[in-house]
Computed example of a mutant assay.
Amino acid sequence: MRRTLLPGAMALCLAACSGGDDQAAESYAGAAAEIAPAAPVELAMEAADTDAGDDGASQTPVQPANTIAYAYFYGLELPSDRVADVRSRHEAACVEAGPRVCQLLGSETQSFGDDRSSATLRLRATPAWLTGFRAGLEADADAAGGRIAQSRTDAEDLSRSLTDTEARLRALETLRDRLQQLLATRSGPLEQLLQTERELARVQGELDATRSALTVLRDRVSMSQLTITYQSETRFASNSVFSPVGNAFSNSLRVFMATLGGLIYLVAGLLPLLLILGPVGWLVFRWVRIRRDRRAPKAP
């Protein structure tokens, strides 16, 4: 690939160094028109490698001290009547901190009857704020009569992604600057100028997309994610000898209503059959009786 791009790079340097040689400008425009559609990304990488060779110390990327993105997961078991209250207080603490410190990503609450409820809270915040917030989760759970049932921390090293994205960004910026300089200082055939403008527009689009990707990576490093799930406590049955009797009394109404509901389903399922088969059966019975009466001998 370097052998393929070497003529283009040599023509680019010749066009940049010459002051008024139109023939060199046309030669560079022809080389750029030939190389850019075939290998735009390779040309950008070649330009970045050339600049790094000229001044390696100044082009060395400076990575931030922290390149690890953290994600925290907590599961809280609380009384069913305190699930919504605890989630609301945690959400209010994030909103009160401000969007620069804590950002709310999602909040959800579900209720299943009077004794079962669950909620989920997802947010993104700075490591300093999350350190204090995570330290207070256990106290909040204890104050609500619950506990922290589970916790997990996930870490992802983004140093390589940051380095590659920054290198690509510098290469695209170098290629964009050279294309802009070519359009501003050189003249040539209209077709070559239009092709250079199209290449410049394509490079500018890739440059904007790369900047957005780099911003997302830096945000993941500067702010960590936190996901909290709130579940109602699981109530275990008592080990007392009278517990079967108590459970039977407490569940008797539920069993009665379940049986009644099954009977209603049975009647609802058989009713259409009775409406259709009832008249048909009566007609068949009537026809059989008439036939039997006709065949029977008459009494003298």
Rank of each mutant, 00 (worst) to 15 (best):
K298R: 14
F249S: 10
D21G: 01
L263P: 01
A296Q: 12
Q59N: 14
T60Y: 11
R3W: 02
E166T: 02
M1T: 06
P297R: 13
R198H: 11
R286A: 09
E233R: 09
E138C: 09
S187E: 10
D85K: 07
E173K: 13
A48I: 04
F249L: 15
A52Q: 10
G53I: 00
L260S: 11
A128C: 14
E206M: 15
S238T: 12
N239E: 11
A97I: 00
L226M: 08
R186L: 11
P7G: 11
A31N: 11
D293R: 10
S243T: 10
V284T: 14
L207Y: 06
G98N: 06
A93P: 00
R147G: 13
L200W: 02
S151F: 01
V101Y: 09
T174H: 09
R291T: 00
S238A: 15
S252T: 08
Y230N: 05
A39N: 13
R220Y: 07
T131L: 08
L183A: 03
P7R: 15
V41N: 08
T126H: 04
F133L: 01
T259I: 11
T131Y: 06
S117F: 05
S232V: 04
G53E: 02
A144E: 04
E199D: 11
Q23G: 06
I35C: 09
L277K: 12
R292E: 14
G113H: 14
Y72Q: 03
L260A: 15
A167R: 13
P189D: 13
L217A: 01
R122K: 07
D142Q: 11
Y265D: 11
I35P: 00
Q150S: 14
Q225G: 03
E233N: 02
F133N: 01
V245Q: 15
A47V: 09
G106E: 10
A268P: 04
A31M: 13
T131K: 04
L182C: 13
L104G: 08
S159W: 09
A119W: 00
S222F: 02
A31W: 15
A128L: 15
T185M: 15
A24I: 01
D157E: 05
R186V: 08
P40R: 05
T120K: 11
T185H: 15
C102G: 00
L43V: 09
I35K: 07
S238W: 15
G98I: 07
D164Y: 10
T234I: 15
S117C: 13
T229V: 06
C94F: 08
P99M: 09
R291E: 02
L263D: 08
L275S: 10
L207T: 07
T67Q: 05
F249E: 11
A139H: 05
R3A: 09
G262K: 06
N66L: 12
L200M: 05
A29T: 03
L179R: 06
Q180E: 14
R3I: 03
D81K: 14
R122V: 02
M223A: 10
N251V: 03
L190D: 07
R122Y: 01
L43T: 01
M45R: 06
S58P: 02
F73A: 03
E138M: 12
G281V: 10
R170I: 02
L193H: 05
D51Y: 02
P40D: 02
L105D: 06
Y74L: 12
N251L: 04
T120R: 03
T60C: 14
A139R: 12
T215G: 07
A296E: 13
P272N: 04
D22Y: 04
P297F: 14
A69S: 04
D22P: 00
A9C: 13
S161I: 09
L270C: 03
P244K: 01
